[in-house]
Every structure is written in C-alpha cells, then in structure tokens.
Design a protein around this nucleic acid. Structure first.
Length: 549
RNA sequence: GAUCCCGUAGCUCAAUUGGAUAGAGCAACAGCCUUCUAAGCUGUAGGUUCCGCGUUCGAUUCGCGGCGGGAUCACCA
C-alpha cells in the first residue's frame, strides 16, 4: 500500500510540476488520524511559497480513494494528508498471513548478505554472570532478526585461552589446590575469588591427588583443566537459553597463523607504530585519541588491541559484508582503536556495526541486588535462569532499548501473574490455542491453513475490534524489518504486547464460539492469524509459546 | 579532567528516528465472570519530557551551554 501510494503521489507531484522530494508515509500515532499519513504538503509549502493545506488540497484532488482501496483521504492539522484503508483491503491483505504461515514476517530484503554476528565472547575464566545475560540475549535476538530479513548469519564467539587472564586462572586454581591439600600457600593478589575455583581444585584433587603439588611453573594442567571446566559451563548456560554459535574463534590462531605479525608489519609500513620503552606503540592520536596506545608490551606480548584488529581484518577476509559486534558499555574504550586500525589496513568500516548496550542492575522488588567482581559471591546467569525461568530471561533482557541502563526486577520476572509482561503475551497465545482446540473438536480444520483459507467468508470480518486486530497483525513484517535495520529488538516486544492487547480486546467484545458456524469460522481465522504472528514474534525472541497455561 | 550513554507520570520504561492531543505496565481508585482461559477487559487519576538558549511550519527527538546519574579512560581483556 505504501508503495502504491508513493508512486501515485510521486506522479501527481510531477503533474503539478512541484519539485520532487522524498515522500514519506508514516503510521500516525493517533488511530483517528488514519492508517497512513504523509507530510509532503508541508515539505513543499515552503519552497512553493503556498499554504500547506492548499498544497495538500491540490494533491488530494487528484487521488481517487476508491480505486486505491482507501475508505477516506483527509487533510488535517497543519497540512497532513491522512489515508484510511478500506476494510476489504485490510481483509484481503490478512489472507497473506495465512498463506505465509510461519514465514509471515520474513523477507529477503538483505538478499543473503553474508553477515557475522559476534557476541558473548567471554574468556573461559569463569561462568557467565547474570549481567552477561543482556548481551547473550541481545545477540541471539539480533541474529534472529537479521536472519528473518534475509541475512546469511554466522554466529560467532571469540575467545582467548592464552595470556594473562588464563594464567591468573591457573594460579588461582593452583593456590586453592595447595590450600586444600593443607599447605600454607598464598592466593594471588588479583586471583579469581569465586567459589568455583575451589570446586575445580577439589575435582583435581579427586583425579590427581597431591601428585601435582610440584607442577611446572606454567601450571599447564591447571590452566587446561580450568579452561575446559569453564567453557563447558559457559556453553551449557548458552544452550539452556537456546543460543548456538556456529564458530568459536580462538584468538590463539591469530598468533599461530602469523596474522598478528602481518598486522604489525602493515602498520610499520604505514608508519602507524613506533618503538618506545621496549614496547610497540600505535599512533592512536592520529585518529583522534588522547594518547597513543601500546599494542605490544615490553614483554613481547600484544595487548588486546592488536589481536582485535587482526581478528576484524580476518572477518573482512572471510568475506563478510556486514560485521556486527555486540559489546557491553565497559568495552567502549576499545572500539575506536579497533576501527581506526581496520581503516588503516584499508577496510571499509561502514560494514562494521558496533552495538553497545548499557549495564544491567538487578533489583528484587525494593531491594537492590549487590554484585561485585571483587566479592567472592557473584550471581551467575545460571542462577538467574533457575530463579526466573528461560522465557522471562529472554523477554526481560531484550525489552528495553540498548542505550539505557537496564533494571532487571527479579521479583517481577518471577511473578506468574498479570504483572509480568511475558505472561501477558503467552496468555494471549494460550487463549487462542484453547479456542482452536475446542473448534477442532467441533470439526473445524484448524490444522490445515489452506482449508481454513477456503472455508472462511472474509466479508464477515467487519467489527472494529477485528479490523483493528488485522491492521495490527499486518504491521508485523514492517516491524521485523525496522527492528533489524535499527538493531533495536526491544521494539518487537513493544509491538507484541500491543498485538496481545488488541487481541484480548477483540476476544472480550466478539464471541468466537458461536452458533453461527460461518461467523465462528471467520473469527477462528482471525484467531489463527493472531496466533501465527505471536508465534513468529516469539520465535524471533526465542520465547516459548505455550498451548496451555 | 576527558570520552561515550542516559535523564519522560510515584516506580520501570515506550514514543514509528523531526510530526498532530507524549503513551504502556506496575502501584492507586471505580466497575465487568450462570456462556470461548478473569494470567483477561473497561474506566478514573497521574506530565513545565532535568534547566536555558538556538535551528524551523513543528523539538522528547537535532545543535550549543549548564545540572544530575552510569560506563570507560593500563605495557588487564
């Protein structure tokens, strides 16, 4: 419809020899303003030196509502032109939902664009904590959205099992191991405090006894054991949430395959690095940073910046046309250096989309849940899932815009009542499922979409509640598209809430189970359409849709 | 001190990316179940969109300056 109107208006502007401008159609906030609106008249008014309402009038005169399947075209306010869809148009469009079924909302807009989404990427030095949840879910939903809009998505996890952090892990485990053996052994100053370290040490004692008391200085066994232990748990947590990465990219391979050296070499050729105090410095100030950065320490070890740059170069080399990185706000400082480095290497950073989400705080009703890294007691993501359930975790982490600090209310997420937005949505789905079950017993062929389509007399769908609902459902593809384009999944939750609300109102006003079988069939179809949209939306959010509640 | 994010109803947040009368949920108040799931629906009340200036037909949205909150500013990742 938008397309069609766009063409018509464009033609009219030409006929009236008005200047050609971007014609934009929006969905008005207020329903009374119709289904679509455009501000072209106001945009044109200035350059034409005319009253915007007059301009609007001249355009509207040339539009024929009926042939465009509109019930009205009106000029309103300062010069908006408002369009209202004819009911038969809405109903006709709604058939598409039934035809497309679980594909409704999907598109090939991106034409199979090779896209890499990297997220989580926690090093295997511990379990995922509750704060990680936001990133875990955000990445999952963004990857889904991109897939739904025609991207060919590779889900990627980047990790480092070498370097300082892992050494620290190994030392921490070793210290606990010695302590558990009764030795008076000091715990490293910045060691990992968590109880899991002791747990790992205990396991090692079980397997190896005290035989590792005098181990090599690298603590190879402890490092390896700790890494595997942590990774196993990280993957298990991700799996509980339905998160599957296609590629686990190991930072080590950047060294073993010489990629790190290549980057340094390339930088040297471009005079982007220099040596000082035994370290190699990157001229970050050339790209607006306040000071230059070390990329190779005097110990000969690179800082994280260098492998990050090399890693991103590999993403380009692997042929990705869109590179999506999802980071928490705590990583914000690293991004400019990586981007400038990649630019310096001759790659187009407009292909990189960095999504930075703000931090999460947890409250339990009134009480603030304290969480600190220094403290031995951390609140793991697993514990959060245990407490509030998989669906609430999915929904809550994605329901706020990424730019704002997220407050996660555990008490609310746990609540199995109307207070909880997840249940509101799921309840609508379960309600529909219950109706359809009943209808099936009555002999309606609700499983067969084609049969439903053919059996339905769509002209019986006339009530305001039904038309409102269908209009809402028809917005779905556009919502998916714009959520993907803006990387703003929270708008999908807002939309689905509206769908559920519009459905509940319809349910309340219009009885579905009916003596009039024709009417019942028509309303069952409306229910089925709603169920399709909710189910598809929930699939993107990775939230389950119960048939019963 | 610098950089980035945020500031909207009592609380948690939306606002179609510059549109018309700023909307939801929770909390408060008043109604709706002999019939399809009341985990629902309807209504009432609640606002100087942190402050000021600017840009324009039009600003919660853009720009500048304040104020307040968060994150980050390592030869840690």
């Amino acid at each position: 419809m938008k397309e069609r109107l766009h063409q018509h208006v464009k033609k009219i502007l030409a006929e009236l020899s008005y200047p050609s401008i971007d014609i934009i159609f929006d969905r008005p906030k207020v329903a009374a303003h119709g289904d679509l609106t455009t501000n072209v008249a106001m945009m044109l008014a200035k350059s034409l030196g005319k009253n915007p309402r007059q301009v609007a009038q001249s355009i509207v005169e040339k539009l024929d509502a009926k042939s465009l399947m509109l019930s009205s075209i009106e000029i309103a306010g300062p010069g908006f032109i408002n369009f209202k869809f004819a009911e038969n148009y809405v109903v006709e469009q709604a058939k598409e939902i039934l035809r497309a079924g679980d594909k409704f909302g999907a598109s090939d807009a991106a034409h199979g664009k090779k896209t890499n989404v990297e997220w989580v990427s926690a090093n295997p030095t511990g379990m995922l904590h509750s704060g990680h949840g936001r990133q875990v879910i955000l990445g999952q939903v963004i990857a889904n959205l991109l897939e739904w809009t025609g991207h060919k998505v590779t889900r990627e996890y980047y990790f480092n099992n070498a370097g300082n952090q892992m050494r620290n892990l190994a030392e921490s485990i070793y210290a606990r191991y010695r302590q558990a053996l009764g030795d008076d052994y000091p715990f490293p100053e910045n060691g990992y405090q968590g109880e899991y370290i002791t747990e790992i040490a205990q396991e090692i004692i079980k397997e190896k006894g005290s035989s590792l008391r005098e181990t090599d200085s690298e603590r190879i066994y402890f490092k390896k054991y700790g890494e595997e232990w942590c990774f196993k748990r990280i993957k298990a947590t991700l799996s509980r949430l339905g998160v599957q990465h296609d590629v686990f990219y190991n930072e080590d391979s950047l060294y073993s395959e010489g990629k790190i050296q290549e980057v340094i070499q390339a930088f040297r050729e471009k005079d982007l690095v220099y040596d000082q105090d035994g370290a190699v410095w990157y001229r970050a100030t050339k790209f607006g940073a306040d000071k230059d950065r070390v990329i190779v320490k005097s110990t000969g070890e690179p800082t994280y910046r260098l492998p990050d740059i090399a890693y991103h170069r590999e993403k380009y080399r692997r042929g990705f046309e869109l590179i999506v990185d999802i980071f928490g706000a705590d990583h914000i400082a690293t991004i400019p250096d990586v981007l400038s480095g990649v630019t310096a290497l001759g790659f187009d950073t407009s292909k990189v989309k960095v999504i930075i989400h703000q931090m999460v705080s947890f409250v339990n009703g009134e009480e603030v849940v304290k969480m600190s890294k220094r403290n031995a007691k951390t609140y793991t993501l697993d514990e959060l899932i245990d407490e509030v359930g998989v669906d609430a975790v999915h929904y809550f982490f994605v329901m706020r815009s990424v730019g704002t600090h997220l407050e996660f209310d555990i008490a609310l997420a746990k609540e199995q009542s109307d207070k909880n937005p997840v249940y509101y949505l799921q309840y609508a789905h379960a309600r529909i499922a219950s109706l359809l079950r009943f209808a099936q017993q009555e002999g309606f062929k609700i499983e067969d979409r084609t049969a439903m389509l053919n059996a339905t007399d769509f002209s019986l769908i006339t009530s305001k509640e039904e038309i409102d609902l269908l209009k809402k459902l028809l917005e779905f593809p556009e919502i998916v598209q714009s959520c993907a384009l803006t990387y703003e999944p929270h708008r999908l939750t807002t939309y689905l809430r509206e769908v559920a609300e519009t459905f509940h109102r319809f349910y309340h006003e219009q009885r579905v189970i009916n003596d009039d079988k024709k009417l019942m069939q028509a309303r069952l179809t409306v229910c089925l359409l709603t169920k399709i949209v909710i189910a598809n939306g929930c699939k993107i959010l990775a939230v389950s849709c119960p048939e019963k509640m």
